[in-house]
Simulated scan of single mutants.
Amino acid sequence: MQTWYGIDIGGTKIELVACGDDLQVAYRRRIATPTKDYADFVRSIGELVEAAEAELGACRAVGIGVPGVVERASGRHLSSNVPALTGQRVGDDLRHRLQRPLHLGNDLHCFALSEAHGGAAQGYASVFGAILGTGAGGGYCVEGRLIGGFNGIAGEWGHWTVPATLLMAYQLPLLDCACGLRGCMERYVSGSGLALIHHHLGGDAIDAGAIVELADGGDATARHALDIHRDLLGHGFAGLVLALDPHVIVLGGGLSKVERLYDELPAAISAHLFNGMRVPPILPPVFGDAGGARGAALLARQNTPS
């Protein structure tokens, strides 16, 4: 049986998994992400693959999910989560270092791909995997295949602009985004965005989990922050329904663990759709944190010639 390696690059950790053709994870290893030294980053990926092959034998190919976007013309990367990658030709450098078949993809796309194969979206014709963590983004799969788009950025709904009417209704500031735009959805609906809303209302919770805990305990400010967050997220997901009409939306990232979202989001989405439109199922992920690396292995399997 062939072995496929999948590597998920995150802002704090890098995870490698090894999968067989059945996509069952047979090996897993994590290391800290070198976020500032690019040479150290490339070296760390090489050593991670070499250590796995020392235990498992040679792999058929390597798939890597990397945060950020790649400029198609130059091949250079832009990543806010791992600053060392910005301006670098990451794919070329890793291929030179690894000397193995390598397929590079977006980490969010890999999450969606994983959930489309044996995950929460198994059996659905199309899926949007929406990540709600430090930022907000996602990936779109149709019949089990990723749709990348002309620029390879399909799924970047976190950089849609929140309407001024919503910002004004909740008296929220117009925030700059690391992408260079202003008022991007991820600045308000990500985990850090929820904390920002809470702070704006006068709260002092340090993260989304603390806000949910306060709300469950009856704290009015925390509940108000969650209400605002839910409405903004409902607007963003309504845009996904109107633009892509996915058969299911699977949540990922830290906020995917907030159980109330699965009960409350359908009505919040429906409020921003015209009459007669159905909201697709909103489901939690099956693979959780392991989904990105598993999806990267699947990316390698799908794109390696037989």
Rank of each mutant, 00 (worst) to 15 (best):
V142T: 12
H247N: 14
D216M: 10
C179H: 05
P280Q: 08
N275I: 10
L104T: 11
R223F: 00
I31P: 00
A112P: 06
H77I: 00
D22T: 08
L255C: 03
A154E: 06
A54P: 04
T134M: 12
T3C: 08
V248I: 09
T86Q: 10
L233K: 06
V66R: 08
S126Q: 09
I228E: 02
N151E: 10
Y5W: 14
G46C: 07
C59L: 10
E15A: 14
T134W: 09
L265A: 02
L102M: 11
P83D: 06
G291C: 14
G118E: 02
G152C: 01
L102A: 07
V17D: 12
L85E: 00
Y170A: 05
P280R: 09
P173K: 08
L78G: 07
S126N: 07
G202K: 09
V162Y: 02
P67H: 07
G118N: 01
G123E: 08
A178G: 15
A267M: 04
I197Y: 03
P305T: 11
S306I: 05
A300I: 06
A112Y: 06
R95I: 07
D40H: 13
L240V: 15
A205D: 13
V62N: 03
I249T: 03
S126F: 08
G203V: 05
V66F: 07
R294S: 09
D107I: 03
A54M: 11
L233Q: 06
R30P: 02
Q171N: 15
M277Q: 10
L255D: 02
E213D: 14
L181H: 13
D227T: 13
L299F: 15
D176F: 03
L78A: 13
A54H: 13
G234A: 09
A268P: 04
L102I: 10
G155A: 03
P101V: 12
H199K: 10
G148W: 01
V162P: 01
L214M: 13
L201C: 00
D8R: 10
G129L: 13
G149K: 08
L283Q: 11
L283D: 01
I228T: 03
D289G: 08
L167P: 05
G139E: 06
A73S: 13
L108N: 05
A73K: 13
V82E: 02
A178L: 14
H77M: 15
A51H: 11
A225C: 01
I45A: 09
R145I: 00
A297L: 09
G218W: 04
G20Q: 01
G236P: 04
G138T: 08
L113C: 08
V189F: 05
A290N: 12
A220E: 14
V189D: 02
